[in-house]
Design a protein around this nucleic acid. Structure first.
Length: 732
DNA sequence: TACCTCCACGTTTTT
DNA sequence: CGTGGAGGTA
């Protein structure tokens, strides 16, 4: 065995990497070398001959993480990484379902619906059921369906609690039936269908259990119920599961993650070892101490304390701005100074709790002429023009895909209006067929029928001509023949869209079989891209499963703007955490949810631990939000960091009774009160007395007239929103 | 069918 | 404030 593999590991890392054939849980703190342990573990297992590469299954949540693992692995091991079963939950399930599509009752070329596509199907189904979408919002139906699937529940297993849920359930049922008819699956369905396939089909289950002796899972704290069950099913009782995660970085409960899975893992997987990785290689001591002190306030923890061999470093810099604009101006100044000190832009991150906060920052950066990149916008494969082109391609692969047909049958416009579409849908409904078949066999008569006939002819023509083409040629043919290119040529902002269509052709040309599998070969050969249909299907799946990663400007040296959520897993030399205000971070909406505050605190923990060397914590006394000026007080998280680790970099404005730091008790505000506030006789910053809650100070106000509410920070009772009409407030 | 205006809404997000 | 969706009008 190559000993150098283990050379630079610390004792705990080494222990984790070299565990024998057992199940184990690795509690890996932020910056403790989690990915390294995972990949080195794989390399060690292979190199020591404990398992062959084909006997491994490694699961991640994002394509980026999967790619990273493959890249590092190919540097460590002289093996062909093609055909390795390393990927996202969805990617691996897709792979299994393609290989066993018959057993899973799916067409070979089943298509994958992204979130938008799914919502469109939900809307369509609700319409056909005649359900009032005012009373039953399609988005909620979508959420209902996905939550059920993430919990492993088919419609028959859902027990509706009330009339609302009964209607939602009816939508779920009809939705599933519709997807089945069209041969399409949504993201959650990929997992659920795969889970059901393996639980019902003993032969397949045993086959894969025999094969995957070692199962490795990244970001285990983010797994949901279904993913957990899927892992248990594959692991059986004989295989080894190696789960790496950090309960303190669990920030996705809102989308179904069950951090309790970490607690249950030991029992359910018979884990014989729990190893904690607590040495942090990323941050200086003050930053880590701040993060540790903060997260220690959470009750529900498995328990872990990060330490570093590095020095204390700088203290955390706290800046209190009078307004969001002043906050942004300060950040710009500091960025200039950092750049002058030789820190590259891409090593500087601006983090915020919610996307809306990026606007003010962007404005300031733009005016300062600083290059920046905002993460989390519209992704390449989600753009309108790309979705249109993909819809044509989907029809080429499978014309019975109603969603794809509806998207483009009249785009670009070809005289197929709402009424002829309705006729078509009605005919299809009566005969129980797809729209395509209905359009082929009995198109509406007259002019509309001719238009539909022309569309059918167009798709048929494409389906034929594609047979002899490469993937890139196919995409190009579709972009041309569909009329998309011509359409965008005439549209005023169409130039960029046409550029993107060109990019799509490039993406197809650069699409290679490296990480692909052959649907026909259960054990995962490489896709034969010379088979046009196989190549097209692989490309479409790729587009659905990997919507991002074609971001413009990637790789340029630019400042990194993103939400704290998107920053998870990344690190930077310098980090600004902005908008550290009550109501924003922690977000007010989270305070009602159970465990809400603890999740916000974990989020703050993630934010703090992104920084290697320098950390700025900034907040603003006033901020424009939803078109109204809001007056916020400093985030409680600032008080949860020991004061000796902090350094105030500006002198805060004078305070009326300000013994506490960061304006925990309130003062008159510099900003002028709005008309309604002064007209109502109250103003922000005013000291008041409430008969029940006692003395406090108005910190925020919204609404007017009968709706007027004020937020009061009571000395003893804390923050409260009070309706002015009812609350018996008196001036102090 | 295309454009325009009005209204409602406004954490976090990957696949 | 800003956007996106819906509904109405030319």
């Amino acid at each position: 065995m190559n000993p150098s593999l283990l050379d630079d590991l610390n004792p705990e890392q080494r222990e984790a990497v070299t565990l024998p054939d057992v199940s184990a849980l690795i509690l890996a703190g932020a910056g403790s070398g989690k990915t390294r342990v995972l990949t080195t573990r794989i390399a060690w297992l292979v190199q020591s001959g404990r398992v062959s590469p084909r006997g491994l299954l490694a699961v991640t949540f994002t394509n980026k993480a999967a790619r990273e693992m493959l890249t590092r692995l190919s540097a460590m091991l002289p093996i062909d990484t093609r055909g390795l079963w390393i990927g996202t939950f969805h990617g691996l399930c897709n792979r299994l379902l393609r290989a066993h599509h018959r057993e899973a009752a799916l067409p070979q070329s089943f298509q994958i619906l992204d979130t938008q596509d799914q919502l469109a199907v939900v809307k369509r189904v609700m319409k056909s059921l005649g359900i009032d979408d005012e009373k039953y919002p399609p988005r909620q139906a979508q959420w209902f369906i996905n939550s059920a699937k993430d919990g492993g529940l088919r419609p028959s297993a859902v027990d509706p609690a009330d009339e609302f849920e009964r209607r939602m359930l009816a939508v779920y049922e009809a939705y599933d039936a519709q997807c089945q008819r069209e041969g399409v699956v949504d993201f959650a369905e990929l997992l659920l269908r795969c889970f059901e396939l393996l639980s019902r089909n003993e032969i397949l289950r045993e086959h894969y259990r025999m094969r995957f002796r070692h199962i490795l899972v990244d970001e285990f704290q983010d797994t949901n119920k279904l993913q957990y069950a899927w892992l248990r099913l594959l692991a059986g009782s004989a295989n080894c599961a190696f789960a790496v995660g950090d309960d303190d970085q669990s920030v996705y409960r809102f989308r179904g993650a069950e951090p309790g899975n970490m607690r249950d893992f030991e029992r359910d997987f018979g884990a014989s070892h729990v190893i904690k990785l607590e040495q942090n290689y990323r941050s200086h001591g003050n930053i880590l101490d701040a993060a540790n002190a903060l997260i220690a306030r959470n009750q529900a923890r498995l328990g872990k304390n990060l330490w570093t061999a590095e020095g204390r470093g700088e203290r955390l810099r706290v800046f209190e701005a009078p307004s969001d604009i002043a906050e942004a101006a300060y950040i710009v100044d500091e960025i200039r100074a950092l750049r002058a000190d030789g820190i590259a832009s891409h090593e500087i991150a601006l983090l915020y709790r919610s996307n809306a906060q990026s606007r003010v920052l962007e404005h300031a950066l733009f005016n300062a002429g600083l290059a920046y990149r905002v993460y989390g916008g519209l992704r390449f494969f989600e753009r309108q023009e790309i979705k249109h082109a993909l819809a044509y391609l989907r029809l080429v692969a499978n014309p019975e895909d109603d969603g794809a047909l509806l998207r483009v049958i009249n785009f670009p416009t070809r005289g197929i209006g709402a009424r002829s579409l309705e006729q078509l849908q009605e005919a299809a409904r009566i005969r129980g067929t797809s729209l395509w078949l209905s359009a082929c066999s009995d198109p509406p008569s007259g002019k509309a029928g001719a238009s539909i006939g022309a569309f059918v002819h167009l798709i048929e023509g494409l389906r034929n001509s594609v047979q002899g083409m490469s993937l890139a040629e196919t995409v190009e043919a579709v972009v041309d023949a569909s009329g998309l290119k011509d359409h965008y040529q005439t549209e005023r902002d169409g130039a960029e869209r046409n550029e993107n269509l060109g990019e799509l052709v490039n993406a197809a040309a650069g699409f290679n079989a490296e990480q692909l599998y052959d649907p026909a070969a259960p054990d995962g050969g490489v896709v034969d891209l010379s088979d046009p249909m196989a190549a097209l299907n692989a490309f479409l799946a790729h587009a659905a499963l990997e919507a991002g990663d074609y971001q413009a400007g990637a790789g340029e040296d630019a400042l990194q703007l993103m939400t704290v959520h998107s920053a998870k897993g990344l690190e930077f030399h310098s980090v600004f955490i902005s908008g550290l205000e009550e109501g924003l971070f922690p977000h007010e909406n989270s305070l009602n949810a159970d465990d809400g505050l603890e999740e916000e605190r974990r989020l703050m923990y993630v934010a703090l631990t992104r920084a290697r060397r320098r950390l700025y914590l900034t907040f603003a006394q006033s901020r424009m939000l939803h078109g109204q000026v809001r007056y916020n007080i400093a985030s409680r998280f600032l008080h949860e960091v020991p004061p000796e680790l902090l350094e105030r970099v500006n002198t805060p404005p004078p305070r009326a009774f300000g013994s506490m730091p960061f304006g925990a008790s309130q003062t008159a505000r510099p900003a002028a009160p709005s008309m309604s506030q002064s007209a109502s006789g109250w103003r922000v910053g005013q000291n008041v007395i409430h008969p029940k809650f006692g003395a406090g100070v108005i910190v925020n106000a919204e609404g007017r007239g009968a709706d007027a509410r004020v937020q009061v920070n009571f000395r003893n009772a804390g923050l409260k929103w009070l309706a002015l009409e009812y609350a018996r407030l008196t001036a102090a």
